[in-house]
Write a protein that binds this DNA or RNA. Structure first.
Lengths: 255, 255
DNA sequence: CGTGACGTTGAAGAAGGTCAACCAATGTGG
DNA sequence: CCACATTGGTTGACCTTCTTCAACGTCACG
């Protein structure tokens, strides 16, 4: 396997070990997974609604959205995945896709066959546990998304989304000012927040004039992180991203 | 163990086997789980936000809501659980609660220690898989909830919620008219749909005048199921409730 | 240099929220 | 068995937020 792909699996492994305790052997089983790299164009579905898949997709670079829609055709993004995320880990236990997966910008993804994941989890139950746990973090994010869309005004929703993305993309967060790449259109922000692109545009203008954040074509310029967190009513706890080593979990055969 | 509690576990086992293939031995392991029954008053939290739990809660009767809230204190229900549901199965791999659990009406729940679940899954990996799969169905429901709240008008949201509940409560669905018990207040419907109780009241009146459904104190009277499904843009597929035996899954050590 | 995708802005209107009053059902203590 | 309190449902008037529609601007790229 080319070294670059091992590095990509390392990113995923780091994600797992940030929350779960794995032995060296178990970690190696992740790194040994067979992969197949693929380039996906912006706005192109790589998993269609209802499709039965036989592999999971690990994002190496770019952004991927999970799309649902109602019968009138209005689209709603129910999750945004970033590099290091397994976009459809749940497909291991539920191969029929309940949502479409689409690249928001050009993305590189690694396909990993279900069969390889299954073989690894059969040999190492702790891996199944770690994967299950990772799925539950996605569910916690989804739950927060419901609160955001259901109970917040446009300004809060958008600020919250930007805070979440800055955090998950591991932006160099500083209290003063910093920048992070976030290549999405205002229409995509609208689809994620349950708004119209017109209103997103107006709210982004407000956030800019307030001196909080400037969302540009190729990047987001955060001018006042603390202010943005307040505006977005953001508490990063639910992302479970900074778990201390002694708090990481393992319920299967404790070491 | 009293026979009644075995019956309750049977309801949960039926839920699992409706989607996953389990051997007789594995099924018996579920029925053998130790339980402890408990009565919970309406509007009382039995799991608080951030609390670390050491047991899961199986609903025997009543309704339970999963509550989140933003810092302004407005509440959002992110899930409604019915009899036979394990309200916090995810706590097995993630013991710290990211949402509070509250009974919407008087409820009876069975507590099952994590340790017992862990012992069962350690002996029977297929059980871990079945539980994981069950968690993913909850996630699919949550995803649909985002679409509902993010992209639908009040009338559609409420109709959708009523359709979902009728289906999950296994109401005797008929095209003509039928009734099912659904003891929630209009404020609780508002918390679930991201609306205010005043607006819920007005929309329920509209649905009643349209001859679709009459939401009363103790029950919901559906007058036109087909019409209600159209109004709610409801497609029951995502609930994964009628899976044919040959489509049920087992990836661990196929029988 | 034209074309298409995306961003920006204004005007008008609809959906839903807020506030406030009142009603109906249920439960409790005297 | 009644007075009263409490909870939840109902309605109206008014206001805010967001959508809709439509036009125009701007940037990147072949």
């Amino acid at each position: 396997m080319p070294r670059s792909e091992t590095r990509n699996l390392q990113a995923f492994l780091d994600r797992l070990t940030s929350r779960s305790v794995l032995t060296g052997e178990e970690q190696q089983a992740i790194l040994d997974l067979p992969t197949h790299a693929e380039q996906v164009d912006a706005n192109s579905d790589f998993v269609g609604l209802g499709e039965i898949v036989d592999h999971v997709s690990l994002i190496v670079s770019g952004l991927v959205g999970r799309f649902d829609q109602n019968s009138e055709g209005s689209r709603q993004i129910t999750a945004i995945h970033v590099a290091g995320d397994m976009t459809n880990l749940h497909s291991v236990v539920q191969p029929q896709a309940t949502s479409a997966l689409q690249a928001l910008s050009v993305a590189t993804i690694l396909s990993i066959p279900h069969s390889a994941i299954r073989a690894a989890t059969a040999r190492h139950p702790a891996l199944a546990e770690a994967l299950w746990r990772d799925c539950m973090v996605d569910a916690a994010i989804l739950s927060q998304w419901v609160v955001n869309v259901g109970r917040c005004h446009a300004r809060t929703r958008i600020a919250h989304l930007l805070c979440e993305m800055a955090t998950r993309l591991k932006a160099p967060v500083e209290r003063e000012a910093f920048t992070f790449p976030f290549l999405v259109t205002q229409t995509q922000i609208a689809d994620a927040t349950g708004l119209t692109s017109v209103h997103v545009n107006r709210v982004l203008k407000v956030l800019r004039l307030e001196g909080l954040v400037d969302v540009q074509r190729r990047a987001v310029v955060v001018q006042d992180w603390d202010g943005l967190m307040v505006a977005g009513d953001f508490d990063p706890n639910y992302l479970q991203m900074n778990i201390q080593p002694e708090e990481r979990l393992r319920i299967v055969r404790p070491i």
